[in-house]
Design a protein around this nucleic acid. Structure first.
Lengths: 173, 173
DNA sequence: ATTTTATGTCAGCCTTGTTGACTTTCCAAG
DNA sequence: CTTGGAAAGTCAACAAGGCTGACATAAAAT
């Protein structure tokens, strides 16, 4: 049965909410994630529609930008898709000269991925849009909220994803 | 160019971070959303794999449970998909006796949607899993974080989604 | 009586995910 | 040096879940 909310939003009572997490509070969090993720992807999706690309291409560009020279296997692990799925995306990006694939020096089986100038430009325009929304959300919510936001998201990740997130977090450019 | 982070996480300086939002801070938020959303959908996805259902069915069940008797048009607006896409999902759920579609009393063009007992059971098992993760994340992050989490997410939504979210928020059951 | 609205349905397409099978390249261990 | 296995790429086939366009029906609204 759904619990009644003894501990509504309007009030406050921050300290109690740790212990008394009602189904209703949790459901609000779930719905907030659902609606917010739509907003989160909306701007890049708009930019990409019309081009031959989609969200999968955006993600590849993002993480190649983030870790230039990363191998296909690294990218596979971060994106959590199969190599066949990633390969199709990468093939398109390489053909269109947005991504360069260089054979590894020490291990020539590996391919190291880099954005071309053209690729960096597209990545930039996508991340500009996404950052603008994130910036607006952060400012609207206030400085304290940003901490909480990231803490809850981090706690929501699977173990593996959290490790990947944290190792990305460390090597700030 | 990517800005250097003068305002790292390790430090603190909550008050300044409102004004000095570096690209690096914003990127962390973006990546946190990406990885966290994977975790957010992981448990229901696991439950549904093997059944003939997917994430789209989960979403339909969630919002029908949330607003019993909602019309197809309402659901369309909330989910943000086309009627053809939703119809395919609903048809499956109705055939399998998880959802009941009743012709409207006052307006006989409308169909009002309800979960059957069987549908309510599946919805329950899905939302139990999702709530368990949300609860764990809330507890790990602490009571203050929950406020911030929801504030940032709400600010990240499109206008239309925010209105939908808020109107759902109001009629707590 | 006509138009608009709500819904459903058919057909076909796209993106992005999946599995399975197979090849090539090439490092490294025997 | 040979060989096993890892890394990468490719082909084929498929599924989920989006999309558009076209069309049908019933009922409400004008």
């Amino acid at each position: 049965m759904v619990q009644k909310m003894e501990n509504s939003q309007g009030g406050a009572s921050h300290s109690e909410s740790l212990l008394f997490l009602t189904d209703d509070q949790l459901r609000k969090g779930i719905e907030a994630m659902f609606f917010a993720y739509r907003g989160f992807t909306a701007d890049p999706d708009r930019i990409l529609e019309g081009m031959d690309y989609g969200r999968a291409h955006h993600r590849a560009l993002h993480f190649i930008h983030r870790s230039p020279g990363t191998t296909v296997n690294n990218l596979l692990a971060i994106l959590g898709v199969t190599k066949q799925s990633l390969n199709r995306v990468l093939r398109g990006l390489i053909e269109d000269d947005l991504v360069e694939s260089r054979v590894g020096r020490s291990d020539k089986r590996e391919r190291h991925l880099f954005l071309t100038k053209k690729g960096a430009e597209l990545e930039r325009s996508l991340s500009d849009a996404q950052r603008a929304r994130m910036r607006a959300a952060y400012r609207a919510a206030g400085p304290g909220a940003v901490q909480g936001f990231r803490q809850v998201l981090e706690a929501m990740m699977d173990e593996q994803a959290r490790r990947q997130y944290q190792s990305l977090k460390e090597n700030a450019q």
